[in-house]
Write a protein that binds this DNA or RNA. Structure first.
Lengths: 206, 206
DNA sequence: GGGAATATTCCC
DNA sequence: GGGAATATTCCC
């Protein structure tokens, strides 16, 4: 039974690594590698059995691929590479990795970085977010949590601004006071010359 | 190939519903149902082949089950019910649903609501949270986001306090200044009486 | 097409 | 044991 599927599944342990920088070329997702190798396989095989109808193949330009017979593909090929034989699950994965259906009358799919002869580009293909790796729906950006956070941040910023202004004002007021104190002393001294030579005597007048 | 596994997989479509109230008895998770039915199956079979070594069975009291031979169980039984033949994946699921290993020397597991003859309780067994249905790890309560929020709140509170103090200080300083202004006027007036009757003449001295 | 639940794998 | 990534299923 599942010998083939399990075999390919275990290939994942060979080199798949998590948490590598997304900028560097990394080990492609198992799904992408298997799909690519599946296409490589049928391409090689095609030379030997050129008489048969194709089930799946690269398109003419190698910019995408066509599933010529979804029924045969699902029943015969999918289980050799994946743990199921459902065409819809295969499509779901294609969508997850950003493939586009590029023809209305046949099952042709393409992805900018999924081309014949460019296996090295597979590592650059990423899952679309929000699969469950991203935020749950009720915590997505522009939701109310985000709004609350933003509001918090705005409050914080306003407070810090006002705070800074208040400190500045305080300094100015303290300088004014220092000036008044000096002035007071001078006035007192001056006045004491008239009233009599005692500073304290003058002070008592006010 | 995967005929058996796929067959059981498709049973899920029969009646499994999502989003039902968790309080009412609902359709059990596929994993639980399959594991239970697997045990039912070996129990029936046991009557016919009582001579063979058991691979898996309910324990004596029917409060749990024992995998007597993990190797045979994984290789022969798992693929008939699941899309894999890995004992560790089976264990992972048991843990997900809250089963406990209840013996140190053999693979015996139990769960309060997983008992022989009580198939109706399966619907009450739920996945442990945080599988992806709950918050992602970095958004869980008591995690650093929570800490950050808390820190944010503390910062906010401190800022508001400081703000209030600064306003109070400002008021006091303004009152001091008002006092000095009054004082200055009085001193000027007084002094001008001595220097001559012109306030402005006195001011020019300072 | 894609959101979300469950399953399987991988890793600590 | 369990967190987290990927895979498969189910549903809108």
């Amino acid at each position: 039974m599942a010998a083939a599927a399990v075999g390919t599944a275990e290939d994942r342990t060979i080199s798949r690594k998590i948490g590598q920088p997304p900028t560097r070329t990394k080990c492609p997702a198992p799904f992408l590698l298997k799909t690519y190798e599946l296409l490589e396989f049928v391409e090689e095989e095609e030379e030997n059995y050129s008489g048969k109808n194709k089930v799946i193949s690269w398109n003419e330009e190698g910019t995408g691929f066509v599933v010529w017979s979804p029924a045969e593909f699902s029943e015969l090929m999918l289980p050799k590479y994946f743990k199921h034989n459902n065409f819809s699950s295969f499509i779901r994965q294609l969508n997850t990795y950003g493939f586009k259906k590029v023809a209305s009358k046949r099952w042709e799919f393409s992805h900018e970085k999924f081309k014949r002869g460019s296996k090295h580009l597979l590592g650059k293909i990423t899952r679309k977010k929000s699969d469950s790796s991203a935020f749950p729906a009720y915590l997505k950006p522009s939701d109310h949590i985000m709004a609350a956070k933003e509001e918090n941040n705005i409050t914080l910023q306003l407070l810090m601004e006002e705070n800074q202004n208040l400190r500045k004002e305080r300094l100015e007021l303290q300088m004014q006071i220092a000036h008044f104190k000096t002035l007071e002393t001078k006035l007192m001294d001056c006045l004491s010359q008239y009233v009599g030579n005692q500073h304290n005597k003058v002070r008592r007048l006010f």
